[in-house]
Write a protein that binds this DNA or RNA. Structure first.
Lengths: 134, 134
DNA sequence: CCTTGACCCTGTAGTTGCTACAGGGTGCAT
DNA sequence: ATGCACCCTGTAGCAACTACAGGGTCAAGG
């Protein structure tokens, strides 16, 4: 079983350029090549790339994906480190949700205040530039 | 009243490099220079930069900030365009909140399932790589 | 007068995570 | 032999800054 880069891409829903990018930054190993210098992937690479994509879908940044990968290779190790990584990431996500929720409230209030006149008395513009424009 | 770039930065809580960057991309006008080739800012630039920073704090991307700025200069115009921009941005924010909330649920479930053994039977790693690692 | 230090200048490269070329080579079908 | 889909390398672009390197300016203190 040997996959071309395009086949690997289809199997993992990843663009070819992204796979080459992962190889360039050392997230994927350099695979063997065919006579025509094409990359030839096997099951191991398919598994590794699937792992990467799942972690990315869960929003882990690439350096955390890298850490998770090396942890997953070290199967005898205490999984507390993995747990800590996931918890860190969860709290990042929660922080972002809180920020965006505050933002939503502010934006809603801004939009509510718009009563449809001209820009000269637009509350949105006014709220953005409270000390100037006059 | 003339401000150096550093004073303008302090007044608007903006790094000096960021101000120069805004000038480079045409968001701020090129200000007059002193004899020693220092930028000399006045009240207009202070107002404009305050506007930009507020819009950025509300999460508007720079191209929308640019649009808002040009709308705010056109004071006789119907403010429906401003309203539409703000509504677009609000729905973007809402979409992000929804995405992150789904993510939070998935991550929490993942973390819940961790029972503190070794990586070999870690549910987090398992969830990331369901078809491989064995 | 000279030095020290804080500030300013330009220009360029780095960040994150890809994406999109340009300019070529390979492999298979017709 | 010719077309087409795919592959190769290398580089530049996106957002929105940030961080230098390598210099110039200015006010204060000795």
């Amino acid at each position: 079983m040997a996959l071309t880069i395009g086949e690997l891409g289809k199997a993992t829903d990843t663009k070819v350029e992204t796979i080459r990018y992962y190889e360039r930054i050392g997230l994927l190993p350099k695979p063997p090549r065919t006579g025509g210098n094409y990359r030839a992937y096997g099951a191991a690479e398919l598994g590794r790339l699937s792992f990467i994509r799942r972690a990315r879908d869960l929003g882990f940044p690439l350096d955390q994906v890298r850490a998770l990968l090396s942890l997953s290779d070290d199967r005898g190790r205490d999984c507390a480190t993995v747990d800590a990584l996931a918890r860190d990431h969860l709290s990042e996500v929660e922080r972002k949700i809180a920020d965006l929720t505050a933002l939503r409230r502010e934006l809603s209030a801004l939009i509510e205040s718009c009563c449809g006149g001209t820009v000269a008395d637009c509350r949105i513009i006014e709220a953005l530039a409270p000390h100037t424009n006059g």
